[in-house]
Amino acid sequence: MRNLFRRALPLVTGDAAQEAAPDLWVRCGRCRELLYTREWEAAHRVCAKCGFHARLSVADRLAHLLDAGSWHERDANLRPSDPLGFAPPGRPSYVDKLAAEARESGQTEAAVYGHGTIDGIPVVLAILDMAYFAGTLGAVVGEKVARAFELGIAERCAVVVVSASGGARQQEGVVALVQMAKAAAAVQALAGARLPYVSILTDPTLGGVTASFATLGDCILAEPGAVIGFAGPRIIEQTTGEKLPPGAQTAEFQLAHGMVDLVVARRDQKAAVARVIRLLLDGTAATVVAPGAPEPAATGTNGTSFATSPTVAQVTR
């Protein structure tokens, strides 16, 4: 980094430096090192000095996980509504808050889903977005996640979900709460079709998302340093008076407690996801199970006719 700094410095001088610096240089959120923006972006926003994984936009996440040009978003036109008529006196109404979130984030909701390929493997991918309403789980996020799993079943391919969320969206009340059950049921439907689900937990994954689809993966990957838990650190300290030890609720803490399978640096995630999906799809299940509705007991299904269908051939290469 030092070398880079010296090499780059002469390029911007005087007033130009004042203007250009914010774009050219970025300060690491953890170690405060000055990083050359272009290099930092090329490393998917991981600090070259301390390894800090800064949050990614949905676009950046897609770029680093999927094969170039393979992404096709689904149902981008779903918009949140206001099921409770949430407009308490003295607080911004939910409708106003939604407008503000859209304005500030440039997004229309806190999740996207669609299909693409990872290392040539067709997958359905859903990504939660902290930039919009703290990635909170409401009806649109729940619906997109559920549709992602159903698309996985229809296309007979693996599902990957990248989670980042502050929890359930209070302003949608029980509608938001029940999305946890709806999404978990959709995960079960995919499990009934015996297709792999890889869950990637990023910073932060909390509350209702942790207590639902995010922790139901066949394989759970976590990003280094990500805060992952049910109750947020502030709530734990307020409720119990316990001071959390350093490192509590990080990805590494969850790995040590047996809650995640792997902590994987961003640059290695694509290869890890591809490898896991390939291995899981190489069992006999992918070629013999009937697709469709949730199967309470999915073992021993005999549907060999599906083995020759083109969709299965596509999945199993």
């Binding site: 779903l78 949140p80 099921p83 009806a139 649109v140 619906e143 509608v175 709806k182 049921a185």
Partner: peptide, 8 residues
């Protein structure tokens, strides 16, 4: 459960 939601 699949039906529960609210969007446009």
């Amino acid at each position: 459960y699949r039906r529960i939601g609210s969007w446009f």
